[in-house]
Amino acid sequence: MIKRITAGLLAGTLVLALAACTATVPISPTDSSGLGSETIHVGIAYDSAGRGDLSFNDAAGAGLDRAKKELLVQATEATTEAENDQARAETLRGLAQGGSNPVIAVGFLYATAVGTVGKEFPDTLFAIIDDDSVSADNVVSLLFSEEQGSYLVGVAAARATRTNRVGFVGGVDVALIHKFEAGYTAGVRSVNPGITVDVRYLSKPPDFSGFGAPDKGTAAARQLISNGADVIYAAAGGSGSGVFEAVAAAPAKVWAIGVDSDQYASAPEAVKPHILTSMLKRVDNGVFQEIQAFAKGDREGGSKRYDLKVDGVGYATSNTALNRYKDDMEKARYRILSGAVKVPSK
């Protein structure tokens, strides 16, 4: 079944990719899902990179896909192309007007829009990923401890480097990405304080293009490689593919570290051998669990934290080359979980 929102509702500012599964079937009282006979229709608003970024948005989409399969929810997906608060508000407003509840906003750039549209639809639950600035009874923040996962891949980078110089490419110079940088740097220096961490950001606010500009990622990675970096961690959304291309084309062996999703699994065959690991930010778990909680009757605002303790962050093990460093990474994980290590977020 296909459901469409009229262009008039969205003021021509968004592109909708609508996906609806079969209607929810009644659940017996003994079923543990808590869905009952209620039909849940989820709305999800991706940031401008949309589905197909092989990173942040795809992770959110994977959580939605799991909910459609396991919880039998219906869904409407939307991507806002215009980079402004008005366009984002129209995206959320269109989803809410179309009957979606809950409505999930993928990324901190939706904060102002969530604050505005949340007041207009007090009976709709809005969930926003990576932002806790909106305080309302119908707004829930889904937050992640990115610095913890970044610390672990920093340990791997420190063990893998031969030049004692590693790189970091951040998509946009904002507080959220600083968490990735801070954790990565701390992990590297926990192994060897003498390793240099060379940092590049692709754009600064109000320019948020750094999350979707592979050419900028390629240029930054080439600079890092020319400066001697032989391991590069890319926390840059869709721009990470450009980093991977530069790493794969390097004249000497250089490792790339991906982010959010297992980017080894989705990389072209020629690039896979160059991706050592990825810092997993389990946005898929966050999205799925929030939809599941809603289905079970949790309709309250507030915030939920996804860290190492709840498998909210971690690292990918698809490339067997990582095996030689896993013991050190697991030791670091246990030190964080025990409280012996407090990972900085700034």
Rank of each mutant, 00 (worst) to 15 (best):
T6G: 10
G8W: 11
A19T: 14
A20D: 11
T22W: 14
A23M: 13
P29I: 02
S32W: 12
I40G: 01
G50L: 04
D53P: 03
A59S: 08
A62Y: 12
A67H: 07
K69M: 11
A78E: 00
T79L: 03
T80N: 04
R88Q: 09
A89S: 10
E90W: 13
N101D: 04
P102L: 02
V103H: 02
G118K: 07
E120I: 05
E120K: 07
L125P: 03
F126I: 01
D131W: 09
D132G: 15
D137W: 10
F144N: 07
S150N: 08
V153C: 05
N164Q: 11
R165L: 01
V169N: 06
V169L: 02
V174T: 10
I177M: 12
K179V: 08
G183E: 03
A186R: 00
V191M: 07
K204G: 10
D207L: 07
A213Q: 05
N227F: 10
A229Q: 01
A229R: 03
V231D: 00
G238A: 00
A248M: 06
A249H: 14
S261M: 11
S266K: 07
R282H: 05
N285W: 12
F288S: 10
Q289P: 09
Q292Y: 11
A293N: 15
E300S: 15
G301N: 03
S303C: 12
D327R: 08
A332V: 04
R335M: 13
R335F: 12
I336A: 12
L337N: 01
